[in-house]
Every structure is written in C-alpha cells, then in structure tokens.
Design a protein around this nucleic acid. Sequence first.
RNA 1: CGGGGUAUGGCGCAGUCUGGUAGCGCAUCUGCUUUGGGAGCAGAGGGUCGUAGGUUCGAAUCCUGCUACCCCGACCA
Length: 483
Amino acid sequence: MSKKAKTAIQPTRSEDFPNWYQKVIVASDLAENSKTRGCMIIKPYGYAIWENIQQIFDKRIKAHGVENAYFPLLIPLKFIASEAEHIDGFAKECAVVTHHKLEMDENRQLVPAGKLEEPYVIRPTSETVIGDAMSRWINSYRDLPMKINQWCNVMRWEMRTRLFLRTSEFLWQEGHNAFASPEESDTDARLMVDEYAKFAENVLAIPVITGEKTANERFPGAESTYTIEAVMQDGKALQAGTSHNLGTNFSKSANIVFQDKTGKEQFAHTTSWGISTRLIGGLIMVHSDDDGLQLPPAIAPYQVVIIPVVKNPEQADAINEYVQNICEGLIAQDIRVHVNKKDDSVGNKIWDSIKKGVPLRVEIGAKEMESGTLTHVRRDIGRDSKTNSSVEEFVSTASDILASIQTSLFERAKAIVADNLSDVADLDALQQLYKDDYQGLVRIPTSFIEDDQYKQLAKEFSLSERCLPFADNGSMVVIGRAY
RNA sequence: CGGGGUAUGGCGCAGUCUGGUAGCGCAUCUGCUUUGGGAGCAGAGGGUCGUAGGUUCGAAUCCUGCUACCCCGACCA
C-alpha cells in the first residue's frame, strides 16, 4: 500500500528496452501486429493520436499555402523506371501488383490470374506520380510556387519491422512543392524542416537536433536533405522528419517545365517533405516510463480522465450529474475530457489511465461531491501530486496544469538529450567512449568522418552520421546509433 | 538477406527429449460480497497444438518443406 510493489510494465526500460517498448504499446492499447506481414493495426487510441497530429500539423502547412490532394496508391511501373538514382533507393523494397483477378484452380485454391500488361508498384513515396501531374499543371511562372500535400499510406517492404518505428505500410503526409528558382526551393526545404522542429518541440514535447544529412545519408535523388533527429531514452537517435531540396533532379525526369517571364523554358525546382506514424514511436520512447505511456497534453486523445467513484447505487445519479457539470466546464475551456464509466473497479480504472498516459486524472466520489471538490493527480508526477481542490478552482486552472505537464515533459526530454550527446577531443576518445559502453550520440568535427579510423569505429559500433546541426553551421556532425 | 530464437484457447506459458489424442496462470462469462493505486469466493465457456506433407496402429511430441513473429546484424529518404 505504501510503496509501489511493481511497475505496470515488465520488463522495465533498464532491463530490456526493446521489449519494454512493445509492452507499452500493448498496455496502452495503441496498436498490434496484424496477420499481414510487417503491417500493424492501429487501434482507436493510437489512431486518435495520429488524428491529432494530422489536425494540428495540417493547419500549419496550410498557413504556408499548401493544398491537400490525393494521388493513386498504384504507380505505373514506367514512372518509376524514369529516375535512376531515386529508384535505386527504393527498388529493393517495392511491393508490385502484377495481376488483376483471382481464379479457382483445380484444388479449389484462389490463385492470381489476369496478368497485367504493365505491373503497378504500390507507392513507396509519390515523387514520380505527383511530378507527372505537376508536369501538366505547371506551364507558366504564374503557376509557381505550387504546393501540394497528401495524407496517405505508403508501403516499403522492409526487412525488419517494429510497431510504429518501421512498418511495411505506414501513414504519413508527403508534401511536394515546386518553385521557379533554386533559392526558393532551398528556402522552402529549410522552412518545412523548421516547421517539423517546431511541431516536435511545441506539440510533441520532443526536443530535436535540426540539421542537414551528410551525402551518404541523403534521400536518393536529392541535392540536400534536412532532418530533425530526436534522442530516445536508450540514447539512440530517431529520424523524426525529413525535408528534401530536390533541385531540378525530379523536374528533369518528370519534365516539369515552365516558361519564365522572358518566355524561356526552365525546369522547376522542387522539394518534398514528410512526417509519419513513426512520430508515435518517438513519443513512446521519449516520454513513457515503467508504468506505461505518458502523453504530452497537446497531443493526448484526452487530456483529462474522470473516474467516478460510486460506492453504492443510490449515489450514482447524483455523482454522474456532478461529473457531467465538471465535464462541461472543462469542455468550455477546450479541454479534451473522458469520463470512464466502465463497469470496473476504481483501481483498474486508475491503472488503465496510468498505462495510457492520460496527463491528468480526476477522481470524484461522494466525499468530493459533498464538499464541492474533486481530487486530481498528474501522470508525470504520480500520487505525490494528489490534490483536492474546489471545482471552480480546478476548472479555471486545469489549462495551466496541463501546460505545466507539457513543459515538464519537454524539460525531462531535454535532459535525455543532454545526457546522451557528448563531445570528444579526438577519435581515440571516441573509441574509448563506446568501448566503455556509451549508448548515446557524439558530436565530432565534420572532417573526422573522412578518417579511416572513424569509418572502422562506425562499423564496429554501428554508428551512422545523424546530421550536421544547423547550430554548428556544418562544422560539426552528430553521430550515433539510430532506429 | 545472414545468425539465433519462437509458433499450443484472447494473452503469457507448461507438455515435445522418453509418441497414447491437451494442461496451468491471467483475461472472459454467471452469481454473491466488494470498489479512493491492480478485489475475494463459487461455478462456467473457450483450443485439437502456425502450415503442408511424411513416418506410425496412433503425432502437439519424430522427420522434411513452407510461413509468420521476436532479438542481433546487414539494409533502410
């Protein structure tokens, strides 16, 4: 009673981080593996997080003049064959549709029939399709800039999958912008990665390192790739969003040409940028603890859960009415609130809200009702934050409490970055660091990565270049292990 | 794709070595008592052992192929 006997999630983070990650997803009811190889079922609670990501981010990109559209899932094979470097990056992981019907064979088994003249590829990304459309939509400099985004699914036949972090099918947004000049496309690619950084930090409470990818980590066919890299609790990096300046590489293969003011034909300069359901994996690995998920209020499907404590049936109506009034007060403050009316014990409901990471829990029984109060507990602090306050006071300060939780999660996440990002004097020091079982990231001078000693260390310790942080103007590179 | 592991009710597992046709915990359902950090008792339902084939009088168990999942690595905008 006095002390927590065990954690809700076993194993704990320190015992077995990958296993803990899977268990958090199950315990919080976000998603599960499906019968389809490498594909997940995103359950309602997990999908609600994605819907919030969509709603919030969609507003931000529309403010930049981006318009949403929808393009086909299936891409004609000849589209893909047109851009060599790009397709090299994806050919190994493309699912291909080769038939258009099923027939019953002699063993009464359904087999593919009706072979297609030209196979289709299930989109791994849509540069080629959208490029083809843009080649028809863009004729004049007056048509530029053109900014098109789609929220959709894509498929990449990955060798090794993990829920949210890398699945064969995943949900994302892919933005595709076209401009008249190289300066504009580079500015745009940087603008979008900056939007990702702001979204990650202000909404998801995930601090990120924003920077540019090195040449060998760059998107196939891009001139430059900008990225936000987040740091997980185990010290590994997670690429959480990328924005590419494609220059004229794609407009040349898709023939996106416009006439400039002088009547001369020119290739458009394009960008593409995306974030995906992978962000949910990042949320889990940054914020959750050994009792389960912990969600920043800004993204939580519900920010407050109310647990009615009904000890005898005669009180039920009165308590429900009391709860309903509080609910309405919170909704009027634009707070997302959920009343757990499930026929279950109070203890189970409390644990359920902890495992699901609801930021703020409210308990209301006869005791509170008689005194015009309620009891509330913060998920980030736990039972030590248990407070009894009047309904009026709570309703008027709930937004502040949620804001405080948002801040405390962000601060905690910043401490994770600080603990897992080191500088070293030279490559010998780097080697010693990882030999001593260091799990985090290291910032080294960019010139080091050409060194043979570095290349050998990178191989030995599975290190890769995460990015050249904007903050260091390209002089430094952050390296480490990544998801 | 390489190495290792796993596959048995919804979930987690035992049973496999020493073949004889399935068991435990949790969850579920019913009833009663309970409910403020994971309730108790009593009763009930639910699987034919990933899949295809082989050996055998008989296969969860032995043999072979296939598939999926997990971990490590390679790969991965």
